[in-house]
């Protein structure tokens, strides 16, 4: 009996110690990871919009006229809006970064220097329209990013014959020094060969052309599909008209041995562009 008691005590002790050490490390490390991710994302967003000095999140809910697609996904957000208005008070009391709330944009320098903490990141996703009505929602975007813009479209790519679903995540509006829209960027998922390819695409709505694209995450085969991250491949999308066909082997050079990855990138961008344009036009932001 005493022996088995000793076993239990030793096991519990080791488990408790391990758990304690891990909890402590987690506490210390999470802010760093979040800050790194936020800084990396902020870097990428500004990188694909060369004309912009700052950016803000654009959400369909913020726009006065919401199109049918957005409402469909927007119904799930009833809660988020509710919690968003609740946070308006918090914004007023200054828990959210004051600058960010006032202008509704994230300070680009703060974001890139990597000193962003969790709060600023949250406030970075505050949308202008909402801020104007006094409903700045830190929560809504934190939890809402997953579903807010998830207007998954089942657009079929006619040229390749395979169906590719473009899942658009956030849409960002890049502002120039005068606070005018310089460019728009959006994060989109493509179904690649090895898994999801997450890209960020920059567009200049006025000129109807892409600015730059960047691959954020992918799981393509090293040496083949993974070459979608190489400048040689990405450069052909720079300043490309959004009215082009985006068809592999026609106006997009396919990577040898990685046609699937190439098609995934090109046709996802094409269908996402159509969708983003519709959504932004509906919101009066194109």
């Amino acid at each position: 009996m005493r022996d088995s008691l000793r076993l239990v005590i030793v096991l519990t002790l080791v488990a408790a110690l391990s758990g304690g050490i891990l909890a402590y490390t987690w506490d210390k490390i999470t802010p760093i990871i979040d800050a790194n991710n936020a800084a990396a994302l902020a870097d990428s967003i500004l990188e694909v919009m060369p004309g912009a000095v700052s950016y803000e999140i654009w959400t369909a809910e913020a726009a006065s006229s919401v199109d049918a697609d957005a409402t469909a996904s927007g119904t799930a957000d009833a809660d988020t809006t509710a919690s968003g208005t609740a946070d308006a008070g918090a914004a007023a009391t200054g828990t959210v970064d004051a600058d960010a709330t006032a202008s509704g944009t994230v300070d680009a320098d703060a974001a890139t220097s990597g000193t962003v903490d969790a709060d600023t990141t949250a406030s970075g996703t505050v949308d202008t329209a909402a801020a104007a009505t006094g409903a700045a929602d830190a929560d809504a975007t934190a939890s809402g990013t997953a579903d807010a813009d998830a207007t998954a479209s089942g657009s079929v790519d006619g040229t390749s014959g395979s169906s590719l679903v473009a899942t658009i995540h956030e849409i960002y509006r890049g502002l120039d020094a005068n606070g005018k829209t310089a460019a728009v960027a959006f994060v989109v998922d493509a179904n690649g060969y090895g898994g999801t390819i997450r890209m960020i695409v920059g567009v200049e709505p006025a000129a109807r052309k892409l600015t730059q694209i960047k691959v954020l995450e992918h799981a393509e085969t090293p040496g083949l599909g993974a070459r979608i991250t190489e400048p040689a491949f990405l450069r052909q999308f720079e300043n490309k008209s959004i009215d082009d066909a985006f068809a592999a082997k026609q106006d997009v050079d396919a990577i040898a041995g990685a046609t699937v990855s190439t098609i995934a990138v090109a046709s996802t961008i094409k269908s996402a562009l159509t969708e983003v344009e519709t959504e932004l036009r509906a919101g009066g932001a194109w």
């Binding site: 050490i21 891990l22 490390t25 987690w26 490390i29 760093i32 990871i33 790194n36 990396a40």
Partner: peptide, 11 residues
């Protein structure tokens, strides 16, 4: 621990 450290410093 090493998993978290790598995620933080060598993403």
């Amino acid at each position: 621990i090493i998993d978290m450290v790598l995620a933080a410093y060598f993403p």
